[in-house]
């Protein structure tokens, strides 16, 4: 069987869960095997009900120690479910969480780990996938050589699955957690900016670079434009290092990877490490005062100019309909 591990927040499944359903359905059809979902958390019953509209069997592991997510707790739960249910393929989100327990699950199952893939399918009886490598400049084809395989799927890489015409059954699973699974004690958390679209789920991303000169200018222009467009806010490392924006907004090798329909890079030079986090965007716009800035090489539309003039002009153009 194919098992997807559905992530959730605030009582609802994350977008990635439905991306996994889509990937899972394709694999299930290709291999003629059933598809099931696993939901783990303190009390994920509402998420299970939601997922039952998409897959015919939803398995639930409820334990207070699963929230906030601890990699070893999650590993125990997923491994137990995979073994009990006889899963051959386990699909997890390519989120920070999924990438934290995914390798552990694969190793404990004695299986292969295909990491952060942008595409996954069957070729004969092997699971094959595409994954970005070399700071996302290369896409490698990887192939599992094991009976079991754990695949983490890059956030936003696949289209979400449509609702199925099913009312799936929800099953409770008891997991024999060990003391060591709880050995890390979660303390205080700092949440990223509230009320804003999650970066990886945003259809439009407005990203600002050091060229804005100050956190005030960044706030006024980048956040202002993002608010108007209902977009996510991104930042370069130079901006994060300067303390203007939180690390959670950083895009690139050491930040997040996004692939929105529209990416606006404003006063961003376009360093390799930055490009690796946004080069899968469908349409890229660059505004930079330096006509030779590398960002223009990957842009669909470019404007050479001062962001402090171009962004207000953009706001104006957006406000007036043509």
């Amino acid at each position: 069987m194919i098992l997807i591990v559905a992530e959730h927040a605030h009582g609802a499944a994350r977008k990635s869960a439905f991306e996994l359903v889509a990937a899972g359905r394709a694999l299930a059809t290709a291999s003629g095997s059933p598809l099931a979902a696993l939901v783990i958390g303190a009390d994920p019953s509402s998420v299970a009900t939601e997922l039952a509209g998409f897959v015919s069997d939803v398995h639930v592991v409820a334990d207070p120690g699963l929230e906030p997510m601890r990699a070893e707790m999650a590993t125990r739960a997923v491994v137990h479910a995979a073994e009990t249910l006889g899963a051959r393929v386990v699909l997890v989100a390519g989120s920070r969480s999924g990438q934290s327990y995914g390798p552990r699950v694969a190793m404990r199952l004695g299986g292969a780990y295909l990491e952060d893939v942008t595409d996954v399918s069957y070729e004969g009886s092997d699971v094959v996938a595409q994954r970005p490598t070399y700071l996302a400049r290369i896409s490698a084809t990887v192939r599992s050589q094991a009976e079991r395989v754990v695949v983490s799927v890059k956030l936003g890489a696949l289209a979400v699955a449509p609702l199925a015409d099913t009312t799936g059954r929800v099953h409770q699973l008891d997991v024999p957690f060990a003391d060591e699974d709880r050995r890390l004690e979660p303390g205080p958390r700092e949440a990223a900016a509230k009320g804003r679209v999650a970066l990886e789920e945003a259809d439009v991303v407005v990203c600002g670079g050091r060229g804005f000169g100050s956190s005030e200018a960044f706030e006024r222009h980048v956040v202002g434009l993002a608010d108007r467009l209902g977009a996510g806010v991104g930042a370069t490392r130079a901006v994060v290092d300067a303390g203007w924006r939180p690390y959670g907004e950083q895009i690139g090798q050491t930040g997040k990877a996004v692939a929105p329909s529209l990416y606006l890079a404003l006063a961003v030079s376009g360093a390799v490490q930055h490009l690796s986090g946004m080069n899968r965007s469908r349409v890229i716009v660059a505004v930079n005062k330096d006509a030779d800035a590398p960002i223009f090489k990957v842009a669909d539309y470019g404007i050479v100019g001062d962001v402090l003039e171009v962004v207000p002009a953009l706001e104006e153009a957006l406000a007036g309909r043509d």
């Binding site: 299986g111 292969a112 780990y113 295909l114 094959v128 970005p132 490598t133 996302a136 400049r137 290369i138 896409s139 490698a140 084809t141 990887v142 192939r143 599992s144 050589q145 094991a146 080069n279 899968r280 890229i284 223009f296 090489k297 990957v298 842009a299 669909d300 539309y301 470019g302 404007i303 050479v304």
Partner: peptide, 19 residues
């Protein structure tokens, strides 16, 4: 348990239009 069977570049065709 996981092998690499090929590589392709990820560079996409971009319009590269300057306005």
């Amino acid at each position: 348990l996981m092998v690499v069977t090929g590589h392709t570049g990820t560079e996409r065709e971009r319009r590269r239009e300057m306005l």
